[in-house]
Amino acid sequence: MLRGRSIGITLAVVAVVTVAATLAGVVAITIEMIIDGHPKNVVLTVVAIAGLVGLGVALVVARRLVKVSRGLVAAVEAVSPSQDFVPPPGRLPAELDTISKALEQAYRRLREGRERERALEGARRELVAWVSHDLRTPLAGMRAMVEALEDGVVQDPATVTRYHNQIRLEVDRLSHMVDDLFELSRIHAGALRLTPRPIGLGDLVADVLAGVEALAGAKGVRLAAEAEPVLPVYADAAELGRALRNLVINAIRHTPEDGTVVVRAVAADDAVRLSVADCCGGIPEDDLPRVFEVAFRGEAARSPGPDRGAGLGLAIARGIVEAHEGAIAVVNEGAGCRFEISLPVSGPALADPI
């Protein structure tokens, strides 16, 4: 009946019931033992004093518990959305101290969650702005070329062929952008499905470099690989290949002509590392923590040109690597920067598709 009432009332009732039961028992024993006169008065006096002392101690303890519990509630109510939980001053009982620490951790996680949500919302707004710009520009160009072809403004075969080729290139680029957006949406929604199996990193690196060889040749960038053919890792070959390809393409795009992009695969303890080193001139230190954010493009020197993507490649690479329970990082090194993927050699948590 008292489980929904104040702790103070509960303790007071417990004390009263205890004293009343003890007093009743002593009185009954006294009567049964036919104690009379002065001994009887002494027994009843001792019992009464013990009861009053017990009741007083219960009230003091209850008051203390009520005070600290109200202080805990006040501390919770005083927390603003931008602040952490501050425990009430003074020493708390063990149970309430445990609750206070749990509240402190919960509020810290909530604040971190709100900060991540704000950062993600900012990234989404930036992504929408970049994608809108990247879509509007080629669409406007294609519309102008199509209208010129429809109106007969352009009739010479060479120009018509050039317009058709340009439209085809823009369509392909927009298709890649849509594919990247779809992949990123799957990653953010937790809908990325992996089919992990043992693969050799040497073969993976060779396949990726073969796929970007034409892009590197057109840019005048050399490609180099340093990997053991049988270096094993437990991963989804298609998705991991996409992550590595995004890093290599990013390196090629930001490496000047006659530069070199080096891809390495090495074993380190219980992990393997894939690294992509370029000659981009380095990334500003302030931008290093943000390079894997959605639509981040950094300084003007690294801003997209006609052959650039929508700024989603690195964000997709991070999502794929984290889905493999790995880590991805970037550091400035030598004449450029080095992107590195770390993956566990074996992945028991990836034994079944996720």
Rank of each mutant, 00 (worst) to 15 (best):
G4T: 06
I9S: 13
L11P: 00
V13D: 03
A20P: 04
A21S: 11
T22M: 10
L23C: 07
G25T: 10
V27Q: 11
V27M: 08
A28M: 10
A28P: 02
I29R: 09
I31P: 03
P39K: 05
K40P: 01
K40D: 08
V43G: 02
V47N: 04
V47Y: 02
A50I: 10
L55I: 12
V57L: 12
L59N: 05
L72M: 12
L72Q: 01
V76G: 02
P81R: 06
P81K: 03
P81H: 04
S82V: 14
G90E: 11
L92K: 04
E95P: 09
L96T: 04
K101V: 12
R108V: 03
R111D: 03
A123H: 09
L127Y: 05
W130G: 08
L135N: 11
G141F: 12
R143M: 15
A144G: 11
M145S: 07
M145K: 09
L149T: 02
V154W: 01
Q155E: 15
P157V: 11
A158S: 13
V160C: 07
R162V: 11
Y163C: 08
Q166K: 11
Q166W: 04
I167T: 03
R168S: 14
E170T: 10
D172I: 14
L174I: 14
F182D: 15
S185T: 12
I187Q: 00
R197P: 04
G200T: 04
V205L: 06
V208T: 02
G211W: 06
G211R: 14
E213C: 09
L223A: 10
E228N: 08
P229V: 09
A235S: 07
A235F: 02
G241N: 05
R242V: 07
A243C: 06
N246Y: 05
A251M: 04
A251C: 06
T260V: 11
V263E: 01
V266K: 12
D278N: 11
L288Y: 02
R290V: 02
R290E: 08
A295P: 01
P304M: 11
P304A: 14
D307C: 07
G309V: 05
V330I: 14
V331A: 12
G336D: 01
S342L: 08
S346Y: 14
P353D: 10
